[in-house]
């Protein structure tokens, strides 16, 4: 193939420096999803409160963080805040930025999941004497979680790729390390195809993991009389 160097390609495919970058990307994804989900849950519950002093700030939060680019948020956190004496490391800035941004989106997913649990379930849980916290913990949240697994999986997939934006503030994740390696041999195409493959492998593995999670949480519903909806007439 003209202009394509297989030897360079294979060299980068097994490059430890790049592989480590992919693991850092994975770590950023995992932690920002976990923290984002926790914060997103709090925001969702606040947003659904009948009290304005809770729902107001929650709405304001999602409005700000969904309404501005992550890139801008990261630059403000890493480059802007030191001006006010708040100095954060690259890793701290990245994790905080990704978490705050993701929480805004996840709160909307969580809110939809909670709203989809039938009102009768809440009444039944209250009727056996559960406190509001117990109703959420044992009855609403588990059912809401099952409902939101598919959109949640979508978010994980999205964050895996979005972490690349942190390369702008010199976070040494997969993309940043790919860019660093250019200086070595200027095999831009080979190098970036390898990076793309790494991302593809990670999103594909996640897809398989997500399917397992869906099956696990769908257990109780599998044996139900009605078949799950599928499009297209069965013949």
């Amino acid at each position: 193939m003209k202009g394509w160097h297989w030897d360079g390609f294979f060299e980068y495919l097994t490059n430890a420096y790049l592989l480590e970058g992919a693991l850092i990307t994975l770590g950023l994804t995992i932690f920002s999803m976990i923290f984002g989900l926790m914060l997103g849950f709090v925001i969702a519950v606040m947003r659904m409160s009948k009290y304005k002093f809770l729902s107001g700030p929650a709405y304001f939060y999602t409005w700000i963080f969904r309404g501005t680019p992550l890139l801008v948020q990261l630059i403000i956190i890493y480059t802007g805040l030191p001006q006010m004496g708040i100095k954060l490391s690259v890793l701290e800035s990245t994790l905080i930025g990704l978490t705050l941004n993701e929480a805004a989106y996840l709160s909307e997913i969580v809110r939809a999941g909670i709203a989809a649990v039938p009102r009768g379930q809440v009444n039944a849980a209250r009727a056996i004497g559960m406190t509001e916290f117990q109703v959420m913990r044992y009855v609403v949240a588990p059912q809401a979680f099952r409902i939101i697994i598919p959109p949640l999986g979508n978010s994980v997939n999205g964050v895996l790729k979005t972490t690349s934006i942190a390369s702008i503030i010199s976070m040494e994740e997969l993309l940043r390390r790919t860019q660093v390696l250019i200086q070595e041999k200027f095999l831009v195409l080979e190098l970036f195809v390898v990076a793309a493959l790494y991302y593809l492998v990670m999103t594909t593995v996640w897809e398989l993991v997500q399917r397992r999670i869906e099956r696990r949480f769908g257990r109780a519903f599998e044996a139900q009389a009605s078949e799950p909806a599928s499009l297209g007439e069965q013949r």
Binding site: P118, G120, Q121, N123, A124, A125, A127, Y138, V139, P142, Q143, R146, F217, A220, F221
Partner: peptide
């Protein structure tokens, strides 16, 4: 106080 509902409302999970 026990309560029984029209649509049962057992916890499906």
């Amino acid at each position: 106080v026990g309560m029984v509902f029209q649509h049962f409302e057992l916890f499906p999970h």
